[in-house]
């Protein structure tokens, strides 16, 4: 018999009252790891501070006109490309679930091509699309040389937007697929056509499901817009490159860009957080439009059955 001895054998007569003072567990590991983390952080900061970075140059260019204008372009490209991506994602996502096999195949092909090739490559191809289609000709509307139509800005928006759309197509398809089949059957028995069912019943429920993903897309898009620098689009990274080709302050200007990108993505993340919290809210505000999101929250069921 070798059972370990309990460290303390309590007799019932020794038991304290219910309000006996208590100590919380100390968690020394957390303190040690915290200290190590701070140390590493301090060393990193010191390395950057003492490295060959002229911080005054960073500060000087942080608010330089060219950089600010470049950041403006970055925001504009991101916003336009995201809008295009969402529109394409919705359109092709709906097509992916269509009854018509031609539509389904077209959407599948779109995803296959644009999700299957690097976005940088797509940007370069859009920029040089004039080599394939020398003229853009729509009878009665447009007849121009392609190089005049597809400016670096247009190429950037098309490249980033069409690529994003291919990802969002799959997101929308998944969202539509996750709407309860019974919702569609109910709409059918009311006599609603497939179009009415899609627009009034399925899509509103899909959009709220995929909202968090769209937040993610927005953050990604802001960063991917830097790829447009490769096709001579004067967004922020391109502006920075043109400056450091002249003054040689490479790392300084890259830092300037990093700061702006971080600022942008931070703002978007905050927005995303509030958006998600808003739509993730439980039955707190009775009668709120957002109730539906937790269709089976315990509170809702309890209050309903009361």
């Amino acid at each position: 018999m070798n059972t370990p001895k309990p460290s303390q054998w309590l007799q019932v007569s020794d038991l304290p009252g219910p309000d006996a003072p208590r100590h919380r567990l100390a968690h020394p590991g957390r303190w040690v790891s915290g200290a190590i983390g701070l140390l590493i952080l301090a060393l990193l900061v010191r390395a950057f501070a003492m490295g060959q970075i002229r911080w005054d140059v960073v500060g000087q260019f942080l608010t330089a006109r060219v950089i600010i204008v470049g950041f403006g372009w970055t925001l504009l490209i991101s916003a336009c490309a995201l809008a295009l991506g969402v529109a394409l994602g919705l359109g092709f996502g709906i097509m992916r679930t269509a009854a018509n096999p031609t539509l389904r195949f077209a959407a599948w092909l779109y995803v296959w091509i644009f999700r299957g090739t690097p976005v940088l490559l797509q940007l370069l191809i859009w920029f040089n699309i004039g080599l394939v289609f020398p003229r853009l000709y729509i009878p009665g509307l447009v007849d121009e040389r392609m190089v005049d139509v597809v400016t670096p800005f247009v190429a950037a928006v098309l490249g980033l937007g069409v690529n994003e759309g291919s990802y969002l197509t799959e997101v929308v398809r998944g969202g539509i697929g996750s709407v309860d089949r019974g919702q569609i059957e109910a709409a059918n028995t009311l006599g609603m056509t497939p179009g009415q069912t899609m627009w009034r019943i399925v899509l509103p429920q899909t959009l709220r499901l995929i909202l968090p993903v769209l937040g993610n897309s927005a953050v990604g898009m802001l960063k991917f817009s830097s790829l447009a620098a490769t096709i001579a689009m004067g967004e922020m990274l391109n502006a920075a490159q043109r400056i450091y080709f002249i003054n040689g302050a490479v790392i300084e200007l890259l830092f300037v860009c990093s700061i702006w990108y971080l600022a942008g993505t931070t703002l978007l993340s905050i927005g995303q957080f509030y958006l998600e919290r808003h739509f993730g809210q439980s039955a707190a505000g009775a009668g709120s439009r957002r109730q539906w999101f937790k269709t089976r929250s315990r509170q809702a069921i309890a209050s309903g059955e009361a």
């Binding site: 019974g182 009311l190 056509t193 497939p194 269709t295």
Partner: peptide, 24 residues
């Protein structure tokens, strides 16, 4: 075609086991 089918289906009101109320 589906439009004319739906016009017939609405002559028959349907109540489902799982309600299928529009959640939104």
């Amino acid at each position: 075609p589906v439009g004319r089918l739906r016009a017939q289906q609405r002559q028959l009101g349907m109540v489902f086991q799982h309600f299928n109320l529009f959640a939104h």
